[in-house]
């Protein structure tokens, strides 16, 4: 079990690094799927099999597909990859990377310094338990999730609407030019 965890963790980290260094967006997204899957494995090893499934379905499935759709819609081509390359020059990333490294070092220091008093072996929390809690005490939370999604949908609907009936003459010209 532990070995699985470490392997999955390594895969997750590596694939995430690949995500953030790819120039081609589709490649990056593929690595992202790998990363999510690796995290799903980690979930499994942590005794949360239900979550592992959700991770794959929603993250690796729905969200990534959504992004791919948008990329398709935007008609990304080779030029964009080239441009991405230009954008990702060392001069751009060295500074932020260093800053993040500092942050990571601090965080790692803290996380490793944490001393959980608990020592008993891992106990899996299965889907049933989660379900009971979700529709028990957290019922209101679920309802809030609904509201959250409603807000998201209304917002996305409003913003994403294509301008069929764009009135502004100026904008019509612009979109025609594009």
């Amino acid at each position: 079990m532990e070995l699985t965890f470490y392997i999955a963790a390594a895969v997750a980290i590596l694939s995430t690094i690949m995500v953030i260094t790819r120039y081609n967006m589709i490649h990056a997204l593929l690595y992202l799927v790998v990363s999510f899957m690796a995290v799903a494995v980690v979930f499994f090893t942590l005794g949360a099999p239900f979550m592992a499934a959700l991770e794959i379905i929603i993250y690796a499935g729905a969200i990534v597909v959504l992004i791919i759709f948008v990329i398709m819609m935007l008609n990304m081509i080779q030029e964009d990859v080239q441009r991405e390359k230009e954008w990702l020059k060392p001069s751009v990333w060295v500074g932020p990377a260093l800053l993040s490294a500092v942050l990571l070092a601090e965080l790692a220091y803290i996380l490793l310094g944490a001393n959980p008093s608990q020592t008993e072996a891992l106990v899996a929390v299965d889907a049933k338990l989660v379900g009971l809690a979700l529709f028990g005490p957290y019922l209101l939370g679920v309802q809030l999730c609904g509201i959250l999604l409603m807000a998201g949908i209304v917002g996305a609907y409003h913003l994403g609407r294509q301008k069929k009936k764009v009135i502004h003459r100026f904008l019509q010209e612009r979109s025609a030019a594009a």
Partner: peptide, 13 residues
């Protein structure tokens, strides 16, 4: 924000 985060973590540490 990251600088702020570093500041806060440094203070905490």
């Amino acid at each position: 924000i990251v600088v702020g985060a570093i500041m806060i973590l440094t203070i905490s540490l």
